[in-house]
Every structure is written in structure tokens, then in C-alpha cells.
């Protein structure tokens, strides 16, 4: 098959998967007694009708693309870093800790914020290194290790919110005492999204794109992911590279958590990761593990999330519909990919 024809077939398969996902979700909506067209219209208008709404989308895009950037590294090394969720949480915890420590000190807010974000990245990296050590030295599969560590991370953040860091008076699900406004990252005019956070996110995905494609490190990571045995024989120690993949991923996840604290919630709240870690895994899969494709896909996912917020008000539909649509999309794309491979093999 020629390259052009191949590309055409690939695109057609992807489009087909997209159509199937939409058809599937529409059928669900029909069954629930809602009009699919009206729902999609609401989804779209809820996310891009105004600049403020779009700023909300970008605000969701930042942690999502950072989490995606992280898991792209672990995917490259052949690892299912499902613990990315907990790594985001630990990032948020470390950032909160650093800000609490430094907020009383006589330091410029920019320095405190930078220190907070750095602490968050380190926290995420440490949590990821734990999953990595369990995998490479303890023989615990990263999915189980990550899953366990996610629970522990949730427990840690709850304990902090209701224990040592609780609000004066009584601890509550609304989180810790908010930081003074001097420690809020600056936001764009109409609010909701910080240009600094956006810049960090863009830089993050850019670094990963370069790292995976254009560095020797990235290529060795890829080799380890595809065949640890051959890599070892070629003189590339798989365990060390897997550890590095975890640590780098943790840095990005930690940054996502840090930004949730510094530019979105301005405090630590329970489940501050908001599922962005898991969603990041989906984005990476849907982007076929290509960093640049992840940018629009993450944007699309963030838009669906924001757009679905008004579904309960406008159409009496639950906002979890966004998750249904995202999940269906990933499943149908993966299924189409599987079907395409089978078909290629038999033809």
C-alpha cells in the first residue's frame, strides 16, 4: 500500500470511530429522553460562547495537558502510570506545604509561588519514584502500585485537610484556609486562567514533544518501552530508564497539582486532581502517543468538561455526560485501531 493511500485509510478509520462514538452517545441521549442535537449545541455553546467560557476551558486544559505530557513519557517507556492521579495530588500537597511555610516570610510573592510550584513538582516526582521503585525493584506492577498509591494520596490530602491543616475552627470538605490574594497567580483580564500557568503548560508539552522525538534519551526510553530485553543487550539499563520515566512524569503531574493550588483553588481541596490524571491517560491514547496531537485533543476534552456544566440547568441532564462522551470516544478509536490492524494483517 502506498503512503498516501495508507494515510487516507488511517484518516477514514479515525473519522469512522469518531462517528461511531457520537452515534453511541446520541443513542444514549435518546434513550434518556433528551435531544442529541440540542445537547451537543449546549455542550459547544457552554464552552466557547464567550471569552470567559473559553478561559474556563483553558483553565481545565492546563492540568490536563500537563498530566498528558507526563504520561506520554511513561507510555514511551512502556509503562501504565495509572498513579498519575496520586502524583497530581501529592504535587498539590507539597505546593500547599511550601506556600504555608513561606507565606509569612518576607519574600516577594513571585519567589514564593515559584518555590511552591517547584515543591509541587518535587512532590509529584517523589510519589512517582515510589511507584517506579515498587515496579523496578519490588516487582509490583505499576498499575497495582499506582492504584494503591492513589488511595494513599487521597488519604494523605484528606488527613491534612481535616487534621494538621484544617481551617480555624472546623475542618471541612471545602479545603484548607485560602491563601492571601497576593499569592494567587495573576489571571487574564476576565479572570479564570493565568497566563503563567498557560505558559508552563505549553512549555511542558513542548519539552515532552522534543524529548521523545529528538533526544537520545527519548529514543532509549522508547527502546526500553518496546523491548526491555533487547535494550539491556544493547547496553541500556531498562530499570534505570523506567525510573527516570516515572520521575519525569511525576514532575509534570506535580506541576499540574501545583497549578491547581496556585492558580485555580488557591488552597488544598479534597480530590484536587479532579480526574485529570485518568483523563490524561485517555488523551494520550487518543492522540496515539503523539505529543502534538494531544494539544487539540486535550483542548476538546476540556471544552466538553466545561460545556457539560450547564447541562443540568438547561436540559436536566447529568454533567457526567462529558465523561460518557470522552470514554466512548477513546473506546471506539482504540477499537477501530484494533480492527484496522487485524484487517491489515489479513489483507
Amino acid at each position: 500500500m502506498t503512503g498516501f493511500k495508507q494515510k487516507f485509510v488511517d484518516a477514514a478509520v479515525q473519522a469512522g470511530a469518531l462517528a461511531l462514538a457520537v452515534a453511541f452517545t446520541s443513542a444514549l441521549l435518546k434513550a434518556a429522553g433528551a435531544s442529541p442535537l440540542e445537547t451537543y449545541r449546549q455542550l459547544i455553546s457552554g464552552s466557547v460562547d464567550s471569552f470567559a467560557e473559553f478561559a474556563y476551558v483553558l483553565r481545565g486544559w492546563v492540568p490536563l495537558i500537563l498530566a498528558t505530557a507526563g504520561v506520554l513519557i511513561t507510555f514511551t517507556a512502556g509503562l501504565w502510570n495509572i498513579g498519575v492521579e496520586g502524583q497530581i495530588m501529592l504535587g498539590a500537597v507539597f505546593t500547599t506545604w511550601a506556600l504555608r511555610l513561606l507565606q509569612g516570610a518576607d519574600l516577594p510573592p513571585a519567589v514564593v509561588l515559584a518555590a511552591g510550584i517547584a515543591a509541587g513538582m518535587i512532590g509529584g516526582a517523589l510519589w512517582a519514584a515510589l511507584a517506579g521503585a515498587l515496579k523496578t525493584y519490588g516487582g509490583v506492577h505499576e498499575i497495582f502500585g499506582g492504584l494503591g498509591l492513589n488511595f494513599v494520596a487521597t488519604a494523605i490530602s484528606l488527613w491534612l485537610i481535616f487534621g494538621p491543616w484544617k481551617r480555624p475552627g472546623i475542618g471541612s470538605m471545602s479545603g484548607t484556609e485560602p491563601f492571601p490574594e497576593t499569592l494567587w497567580m495573576t489571571e487574564l483580564a476576565s479572570g479564570h486562567v493565568s497566563p503563567w500557568a498557560l505558559g508552563l503548560a505549553v512549555a511542558g508539552i513542548g519539552v515532552v514533544a522534543l524529548l521523545v522525538r529528538n533526544t537520545g534519551f527519548g529514543l532509549r526510553l522508547k527502546a526500553v518501552g518496546k523491548n526491555p530485553c533487547s535494550s539491556h543487550r544493547l547496553g541500556i539499563p531498562p530499570a534505570r530508564y523506567m525510573m527516570w520515566a516515572f520521575i519525569l512524569c511525576g514532575l509534570f503531574a506535580g506541576a499540574a497539582g501545583a497549578l491547581q493550588v496556585t492558580s485555580v483553588y488557591h488552597r488544598l481541596i479534597p480530590s484536587i486532581s479532579s480526574g485529570y490524571g485518568f483523563l490524561g491517560l485517555l488523551v494520550a491514547m487518543l492522540a496515539a502517543y503523539r505529543a502534538l496531537w494531544a494539544i487539540p485533543i486535550a483542548l476538546f476534552f476540556a471544552a466538553i468538561n466545561v460545556g457539560s456544566i450547564q447541562l443540568p440547568i438547561m436540559l436536566q441532564l447529568d454533567s457526567s455526560l462529558s465523561g460518557v462522551l470522552q470514554g466512548a470516544l477513546v473506546l471506539f478509536v482504540l477499537m477501530a485501531e484494533g480492527a484496522r490492524r487485524r484487517w491489515m494483517r489479513s489483507s
Binding site: N214, T215, G216, L219, R220, K222, S231, L234, I236
Partner: peptide, 14 residues
């Protein structure tokens, strides 16, 4: 890519 891998570990950017 195999050639790059075999060349050793002193290549940061390819």
C-alpha cells in the same frame, strides 16, 4: 534508530 541506539549514550540531541 538502531544506529543511534548503538552509538552509545553521549548523544543528548539526535
Amino acid at each position: 534508530e538502531h544506529c543511534v541506539l548503538a552509538a552509545g549514550r553521549n548523544n543528548f540531541s539526535i
